[in-house]
Design a protein around this nucleic acid. Structure first.
Lengths: 291, 291
DNA sequence: ATATATATCTACATTTATGCACAGTTTATG
DNA sequence: CATAAACTGTGCATAAATGTAGATATATAT
């Protein structure tokens, strides 16, 4: 049995197809098919059943999948622990953050950081998808959350205050708003905050990117919930209401405990924290609760 | 990271050298070196330090080793569980047993079994080394033990009675014996049973094969402890004493719980148990405790 | 219906990994 | 001290795995 084939099974199950797994693994789909078949031959059992044109996992496949998941956790732990021992101030540091943080905060910070540590290259991934610090898909993560998980070390960069924003000069009152733009959430249906702050509103649009939300507000699609750090910075937007105090969250800078002693990661993390301290005012909302 | 490389690290540590690992894995030693180096490059850490001409594991290596051991356990479990689902009455069944069981019991049993199930080929490994049922180095094991471990299903074939044997007609009394042949055991020094039953004896020879013990007794090297099933069957040997009741053990037929539902293994196991029932008398000691 | 996108499968070319042979070193042994 | 046995290291031929490309099938959308 080739242990590496189990990684392929994992990818096939996660991606839902041979082709998808091939993309995720950056190999050819023919390779995925051949390796899964090879594993099946070696084990003397078929791991997937053909359902028409798709593969669905078999009972024997479930057994292998479970083992593969545990093996992945072991391998990832070893990888993190070894990465944590690295003392070189060179190499790559991967950071993931929500899109709005990219241009506003990360890009200027990294420019300055590069001057101090020219041998460390920073890899920024702006994505809605939560990169897994456990699997070491990223070394650092900037996340909006109320409480970070236990296996990471977190630094609370700043509180995040939500506000309801409409086009500048619209003169609307929150209670009268009729159309609201929301982000597609985990639970279907109208979000709680809409019911509470915008009792008259109906959902006019769902968008999963902050830039589009902002553009949609300006184009008159309705109002939307934005972080005050975003909304207040744009003169074309007007804050109709604060969402206090229930909808407070924080912006956290997170690292997995196993890699926190890695020199280049620590240095970049410390830099980001320090950078934020010195540019603090930029991220503070104005006139909060004044209404 | 290629998970299969972790199997190589495991082998290098267990065998103590690149060359040894290569033999254990049935690959060329150059391959082992290259793959370990590849893994080290991928992780950015050296897993082994060169101590003169040998490899000794490094701190980072220990981390990987530990993960690899756990991954091996996961992979082995999956392998066993899948083997347990097999219902075909064909393929290979591997059984390991102490050497004396081979010709006396297993060989005639398997001959008969082959008549009933011609598509099942039995692979007999006679070895002092304990094949690992957990790693599936064998499907069935005949072992001498007082209590089988918890993760196996055991069938107690028969009690094992030990006796002290000398050459036939030697007329010795156990208390007067001067020379004893022993098997090299886990703990160095004179075994307890020698002190108790042969107070005057000194160790004249250490042998790790029962046939050699028997031959040595006949050649006058001294007396030895043998199972009554072996000693009584040889007319050239004479039992000088029984070792009762402290040194009772049992002969067990063992299978890992995960593979017990495998059809060909179950069928062979049931056959062996049945075969023994019908040839029971052969394995019973005569005149036990008569002295 | 037609077009588009996605998935599986197979033959063939190409890249990559492996085995082999030999060299160089160290350790064990008489 | 000499010899054998074991281990590591490296270039080269070969074998094996991978990528490529073209074909077929299925679902989805226009």
């Amino acid at each position: 049995m080739n242990w590496d084939d189990l990684r392929y099974v994992l990818a096939v199950v996660r991606e839902g197809s041979m082709s998808g797994a091939a993309r995720a693994l950056s190999v050819n789909h023919a390779t995925v098919i051949r390796r899964v078949r090879g594993l099946e031959r070696g084990l003397g059992a078929s791991l997937f059943d053909r359902d028409g044109h798709h593969y669905v996992i078999s009972p024997a496949g479930e057994v292998v999948l479970e083992a593969a998941e545990r093996m992945e956790a072991q391998a990832a732990t070893a990888e993190r622990l070894i990465a944590g021992q690295s003392t070189a101030l060179s190499g790559t540091v991967r950071i993931t953050a929500p899109e709005p943080m990219g241009t506003e905060f990360l890009l200027p910070a990294v420019r300055e950081f590069n001057g101090d540590y020219p041998d460390i290259v920073v890899d920024i991934s702006l994505s809605r998808r939560a990169y897994d610090l456990g699997r070491r898909e990223a070394d650092l993560a900037i996340r909006v959350t109320t409480e970070p998980p236990l296996d990471v070390v977190g630094f609370r960069i700043t509180p995040l205050y939500w506000g309801i924003y409409g086009p500048a000069g619209c003169g609307l009152l929150a209670a009268d708003v009729e159309k609201v733009i929301v982000e597609p959430g985990a639970s279907a249906g109208v979000p709680d905050w809409v019911l509470q702050f915008l009792p008259q509103a109906r959902v006019s649009l769902m968008v999963d990117a902050v830039e589009l939300e902002v553009a949609a507000i300006k184009a008159g699609y309705g109002v939307a919930r934005l972080a005050t750090q975003i909304g207040d910075a744009d003169p074309a937007l007007e804050r109709l209401a604060d969402m206090l105090p229930q909808y407070l969250a924080d912006i956290w800078l997170l690292t997995h405990v196993d890699v926190r002693s890695n020199a280049r990661i620590r240095v970049f993390r410390d830099f980001l924290i320090d950078y934020f301290e010195h540019n603090h005012a930029l991220y503070q909302p104005r006139n909060l609760g004044a209404r």
